[in-house]
Simulated scan of single mutants.
Amino acid sequence: MEGQTQWGRELGQAGLSAQQDCSIQEKIDLEIRIREGIWKLLSLSTQKDQILHAVKNLMVCNTRITAYTSKLQKSEEQIANQTGQCDMNFENIERTACKAKIAISDIRIPLMWKDSDHFSNKERSERYAIFCLFKMGAEVFDTDMVIVDKTITDICFENVTIFNEAGPDFKIKVEVYSCCTEGSSITNTPKKLAKKLKTSISKATGKKINSVLQEENPETCLFFNSTVFGAKYHLLAHTTLTLESAEDSFKTHNLFINGNEESSFWLPLYGNMCCRLVAQPACMAEDAFAGFLNQQQMIEGLSIWRRLYCVLRGGKLCCFYSPEEIEAKMEPTLIVPIHKVNEMLF
């Protein structure tokens, strides 16, 4: 009987893993369809702003596909490693902390322009398209794209990014990407550039590149995107946020900067990023436990038990006489704070 129970648990885990794999594959398929749509839109774009947004969205889409594919491969490897293992000893199972919601907001990246750059030649100032990527496991989020020039002293993002399934050991990689928007080549469409390539280089090579562009195959054409669209985002800076980074107020984090003054995408960063990172454990907002418990009371030397309906939430055990009292929004009969040293008789 015990063997059948263990086998049933294993089948249940395998079924859950299969459902998760199916969900991940559906996400991959969705991102591929989105990527195809972005590619078609990009092939018709003629305005600089349209191209910058489309190339950015294409980059985010590919990053998500890569993250989902990696997670799917790891999941398949775990299923393969668990095949034939029926040993389920619950005494050896370690307790795990609940998941949490992580929110990142109010991102500000200060710039350090030279006085000669900041106060002069503003009408001829180079402009840069900037956005951030946040990556945690298979979850990838991005901010809006902002345009920065030498009149701007801080790069600010108003987006609020929320990760719903973060463990206590979470690591969120923050990447800042930059693209210089100056230059006429950024407004060229693929078809126009294909003609240029066809006439400016050898006839055979030009025809080959032209045929690739006409196929509108995202997998192949992405190789040419920096040349075809004249817009390419480069990794400007990055950092990693963990639970230690969480704070009630703003906190400054060090940035690791890529490139130098010779790089076309380079901006004079101070090397810091300010943001608000907050964490909310699921047990603080959701019911971690709900059910009937018996409470022991001592009245005039006699031990008396009473049955209470208890809900564990936010580090407190709220006790009611019945579940209907919760629906009626009545105050709990008893509230017991839960901490490491308290003892209760239930």
Results as ranks from 00 to 15, higher is better:
E2H: 08
Q4I: 06
E10A: 04
L11W: 01
L11Q: 10
Q19S: 14
C22S: 12
S23E: 15
D29C: 03
L30M: 05
I32V: 02
R33V: 14
I34N: 15
W39T: 05
S43C: 00
S43M: 04
L44N: 00
L52Q: 04
H53S: 05
A54R: 00
L58E: 12
V60C: 14
C61F: 11
N62Q: 14
N62G: 15
T63Y: 00
R64P: 08
R64H: 11
T66M: 04
Y68H: 15
L72G: 05
Q82A: 10
G84V: 06
G84P: 11
D87Q: 01
M88D: 13
I93Q: 09
T96L: 14
C98Y: 10
K99G: 00
K101M: 12
I104A: 00
I107V: 08
R108A: 02
R108D: 03
P110L: 06
W113A: 06
K114F: 11
S116A: 08
S116V: 04
N121R: 03
E126A: 03
A129K: 04
A129M: 01
I130K: 01
I130E: 08
F131S: 01
F131I: 13
G137N: 03
F141T: 00
V146H: 09
I147Y: 15
I147P: 14
T153Y: 10
I155A: 07
I155V: 04
C156L: 06
N159D: 11
T161P: 06
T161Y: 02
P168C: 02
I172N: 03
K173Q: 12
Y177F: 14
T181R: 07
S184Y: 15
S185D: 15
T187D: 07
L197S: 06
K198P: 03
T205V: 09
G206L: 06
S211Q: 11
L213A: 05
Q214Y: 10
P218S: 05
L222T: 07
S226N: 04
V228I: 02
G230K: 05
T240C: 01
T240D: 06
E244W: 01
A246S: 07
E247Y: 08
D248Y: 10
D248W: 05
T252K: 01
G259R: 04
G259K: 08
E261A: 11
E261F: 06
E261M: 02
E262I: 02
W266M: 00
Y270H: 03
Y270P: 08
C274R: 01
R276C: 03
P281C: 00
A282Q: 12
A282Y: 13
A285I: 15
G291L: 08
Q296S: 08
M298T: 07
M298P: 04
E300G: 13
E300A: 03
L302M: 14
I304D: 09
L308G: 04
Y309N: 01
V311H: 01
G314S: 11
L317F: 02
C319Y: 12
S322T: 15
E327A: 00
A328D: 11
P332V: 15
L334Q: 12
E343Q: 05
